[in-house]
């Protein structure tokens, strides 16, 4: 037994190099490329003082939060939605006031929801209200299983509330009646629209739309910016429980702060996300068109309210999908 135990320790020793700090960043699906570039740049930036290695994990935002609740030792999280981090904070793994810990409500970059349509925009889709027309097929992931699906839903509902709060639910319902397939994640929705060529319009994160334009070879798409859309805030936080245990608090904070530097903001802008740094934003303004963006708090008061009145069982979302 003792032999077994000591050989086990030896094994761990082999993987843990002296003087090297290892951080695990648990993030959501489409940020893989972004963080691998940022991590490289950060490791270079730190290399004169310390050897740092950042590991990344990607998956559906809520699923990732679930893994951390179940015990996955993430040093930092960078998830698609405030609710997912709140859920971890409720269990005490992250400090309650995490949103005030980092600049811009712990949001180092933002994005929005746009439309991707086929070349020449044959169905003349320009705004949310066009998606409710009877002969339009809309592709969007299920708000039940996908973070992107939730943002899309809120963007649409927010727009219709702004138009006329009395008919908003009716309009959203019409929109979702035009959805022939509710994929479980944003990526599967994108493949339904792009590879399987189903639907007239794909509702999608701006960064994913930009990626689709860049990568599609045999077919052409156009990005349509609706008159109004949502300020989609992926957020970051240090996971207190892990960093206390691993003694990595300082490094984890330094890593997250690094996301706000000019270097990181530049990488962010190159990867399809909107940087919060004014200067960098100006530089990339021709890509990230200025449109009317509303925050969740401005229209729906708070995320608690959103979850209670819209996404939880038997409420608005279930009503719309009926």
């Amino acid at each position: 037994m003792r032999l077994f135990f000591s050989s086990f320790l030896l094994l761990i020793g082999c993987f843990h190099k002296e003087d090297e700090i290892v951080l695990l960043n648990v993030s959501y699906d489409p940020t893989r490329e972004l963080y691998s570039q940022i991590n490289q740049s950060y490791q270079k930036f730190r290399s004169s003082q310390k050897k740092v290695r950042i590991l990344q994990s990607h998956g559906g935002s809520s699923k990732q939060a679930g893994y951390i609740l179940a015990g996955l030792r993430a040093d930092v999280v960078s998830l698609a939605m405030q609710t997912d981090i709140d859920k971890i904070a409720q269990k005490g793994f992250i400090e309650k006031n995490w949103r005030e810990k980092k600049p811009n409500q712990s949001t180092p970059f933002y994005s929005t929801v746009v439309f991707l349509v086929r070349e020449t925009n044959p169905k003349k889709i320009f705004d949310w209200k066009d998606l409710t027309q009877p002969n339009i097929q809309v592709i969007t992931p299920s708000p039940k299983t996908s973070g992107g699906g939730k943002w899309n839903f809120l963007a649409a509902y927010g727009y219709f509330l702004n138009q006329d709060s009395r008919t908003a639910i009716q309009q959203v319902k019409k929109l979702y009646e035009n959805v022939p397939i509710l994929d479980t994640s944003s990526r599967s929705s994108a493949s339904t629209f792009i590879q399987r060529k189903i639907g007239d319009v794909l509702i999608i994160w701006e960064n994913e739309a930009l990626l689709a334009l860049k990568e599609s070879k045999d077919q052409k798409f156009e990005i349509i910016y609706p008159s109004m859309s949502i300020y989609a805030q992926p957020m970051i936080a240090v996971v207190n429980r892990t960093v206390k245990l691993k003694n990595t608090e300082e490094e984890a904070n330094m890593y997250l702060d690094y996301l706000y530097t000019k270097e990181a903001q530049e990488i962010i802008a190159q990867n399809g996300y909107r940087p919060i740094d004014k200067e960098i934003y100006e530089k990339y303004k021709n890509i990230y068109k200025e449109i009317n963006l509303f925050k969740v708090e401005e229209v729906f008061k708070s995320w608690e309210e959103v979850n209670k009145k819209i996404f939880s069982d038997g409420n608005l979302l279930d009503e719309v999908l009926k």
């Binding site: 809520s62 939060a65 299920s142 039940k144 299983t145 397939i181 994929d183």
Partner: peptide, 27 residues
């Protein structure tokens, strides 16, 4: 199944998907 069914409630939604939906909501 989830890649071919379309996952439309009351039509092509399979029961294991309902389990996953609950999990996504931390329920």
């Amino acid at each position: 199944v989830i890649f071919v069914s379309g996952n439309i409630p009351y039509f092509t939604e399979i029961s294991p998907l309902l389990v996953v939906m609950r999990l996504e909501q931390f329920d």
